[in-house]
Design a protein around this nucleic acid. Structure first.
Lengths: 179, 179
DNA sequence: AAACTATATGCACATTGTTGCATATAAGTA
DNA sequence: TACTTATATGCAACAATGTGCATATAGTTT
């Protein structure tokens, strides 16, 4: 449901193709929302039907034609309405943490490898977010308000990944003692 | 898909009714997985078909009869297999953070109220998790391994809620300056 | 030469999750 | 007395998401 608004938020800043929107969701909004490219295209088709976006076909000779989407007045209206509605808290669904509740069934070497694997990912994601921060938000105090809000979202991503890194180090030391 | 394993993990520790399983998911596993009671009952019916659980009807005179579920060998096998498979990272879907990307469309009073509302929830959840910690995990060093793993999961919940509290204070001060 | 990555789009089917409803009783609260 | 909460179960319809497949071309890596 909120994928609609994720896409509209992107298009509210600038026009983009489905492909670009998919990338934006993965990169800039990676710690906030995610969707596969199939989902993005499907949702864009729906937004077209609802007249929340328009699109313009841009022919390309070497690659498939691009459809450049733009938000409409109605789209912006829907977005503004949604923004000011109360938001639900995110549902928690974390397979790795869930597995902590099946304790004695673990093969400890597996568990260790699993956490180490995730640790690499968290480190990489943290680095990516820190790079975004230093590129776009190096002087947050002097940013316009709507960028400060985006910075707040990014800060969540940074903090979450830092905290996962600490957690995994802690978890690995617990496992080490058990061995 | 993983709801199956959430339920099996619970039943692996002790037999329980659908009602009790719903509560466990909300309380003890609240920072790890969540499901409505309808989902729980539906999944239990499926687990029955797959012969991963058995159940026993316990008549009650004052309240509706209870169906007490227990895990089977097959269920435990499925669970052990799943535990040792690599886990996907959780998908991120946070409506409040998403709204940070629709900056100039916010009514600032709304935004402030929204964050304050969420703050109350995070504080309450943190307190709840801290209470669980002091009741069951006050001496983690001397706990059996599978309880230490559960403690690790709880620590995530504590940390996430603490970090949301800090974030909301930060966010509120950013908003205050804008006013 | 074959495989992989990036660009670019999308359909069809399957699984999962939400919402509204339905039933039944007891105890506590306004 | 009427409403809410807790216990206890579940179906049916609908909405949202995920997975597998399909197509097309160019450049880069093995």
């Amino acid at each position: 449901m909120a994928l609609k608004y994720a896409l509209l938020s992107c298009l509210n800043e600038s026009r983009a193709t489905g492909y670009e929107l998919t990338q934006l969701l993965r990169e800039r909004m990676g710690n906030v929302w995610n969707a596969s490219h199939q989902q993005t295209y499907r949702e864009l088709a729906k937004l077209r039907d609802e007249k929340c976006v328009t699109f313009e076909e841009v022919p390309q000779s070497d690659k498939p034609d691009r459809k450049v989407y733009a938000i409409t007045e109605r789209g912006r209206g829907d977005l503004a309405e949604w923004v000011n509605e109360p938001s639900e808290r995110p549902r928690v669904r974390d397979p790795l943490l869930l597995k902590m509740f099946a304790g004695e069934l673990w093969d400890i070497a597996n568990l260790k490898a699993e956490i180490e694997g995730h640790r690499i990912h968290w480190q990489a994601t943290l680095d990516r977010y820190l790079a975004i921060e230093s590129r776009y938000f190096s002087d947050p105090e002097n940013l316009p308000f709507h960028y400060r809000l985006q910075h707040l979202a990014l800060l969540r991503g940074i903090d979450v990944n830092r905290s996962w890194l600490e957690w995994s180090d802690n978890a690995l030391s617990v496992i080490e003692k058990e061995k």
